[in-house]
Simulated assay, not measured.
Amino acid sequence: MLITFLVVAVVSAALIAGALWGIYGKLSSQTEGFVIALAGGALIVSLVSEMIEPAIAQSNLWVGLGAVAAGAAVFSGVDYWIDEKWGADGGGGLLAAITLDGVPENLALGVALIGAAPIEVAALAGSILLSNLPEAAGGAKQMVGNGLSKGKTLGLWALTALLLSAAAIIGYFALEGVSPHVLAATRCFAAGAVVASLATEVFPKAYKEDHHMAGVATAIGVILAVFLGELATA
């Protein structure tokens, strides 16, 4: 249990560290795009190997695939609503979009930790941490640029970190002991939402910021995730 809280705390603290980086440090668009693409590549592998495949083995193919499709559809619908109501470039819309992205990621992390040794979810946790850093840095930098004070910006990101920590803890405790089919469907639903976020938020932003190296960074992310996965099964 202590390890679970430690993993969740480190992953969520990356949001605060990223916000501090964006507010007080220097962040080039190329660096941001490279790290985001790297994290996206790692997430592709870890979602399939740590979430979807184990869920299908635990339940059945149709429950898993149906839940993945449902998660992607729900994420895309809510993401569209946020863009239309708040605007993708506004401070509130940006924070809401990142929260929407982070909730399924952290829910997936919490669910993945059920009955698993920490090394078995190292790729998933590491890729979420890597994605949180540049997303928070870029978001905080934009919010300050739009006129929000540094203190309020940091406070909003701290609240976001608490919300995403809660999502991971809920995923771990609320779903522990449920039927294998419910757990499998939940894992795949969260995975589907993250897949949709990769397609609509992560990779487009990575390409926009660093289009020359985005493909290389994505491949590096895939390599790192596969390597960590092999370490877990060794």
Results as ranks from 00 to 15, higher is better:
87 G>S: 05
87 G>L: 02
87 G>T: 04
89 D>E: 13
89 D>Q: 07
89 D>W: 00
91 G>L: 04
92 G>H: 06
99 T>F: 03
99 T>V: 15
101 D>N: 13
101 D>M: 08
102 G>H: 02
103 V>W: 06
104 P>C: 10
104 P>R: 09
107 L>R: 13
107 L>S: 13
111 V>R: 02
111 V>Q: 05
112 A>T: 15
114 I>M: 03
114 I>K: 08
115 G>A: 05
115 G>M: 03
118 P>M: 07
118 P>D: 12
119 I>T: 14
122 A>L: 10
136 A>D: 11
136 A>L: 03
137 A>S: 09
140 A>L: 03
141 K>G: 15
141 K>A: 15
141 K>I: 04
141 K>S: 15
141 K>R: 11
142 Q>F: 02
142 Q>C: 08
144 V>I: 08
147 G>L: 04
148 L>D: 05
152 K>N: 11
153 T>P: 05
155 G>F: 04
158 A>F: 09
158 A>I: 10
159 L>H: 06
160 T>F: 00
160 T>W: 00
165 S>W: 03
171 G>P: 14
171 G>K: 11
172 Y>G: 12
175 L>E: 00
175 L>P: 15
176 E>P: 08
178 V>W: 04
180 P>Q: 07
184 A>S: 14
187 R>Q: 15
189 F>E: 06
191 A>G: 14
195 V>T: 03
198 L>F: 04
201 E>V: 01
202 V>H: 03
202 V>L: 07
202 V>F: 03
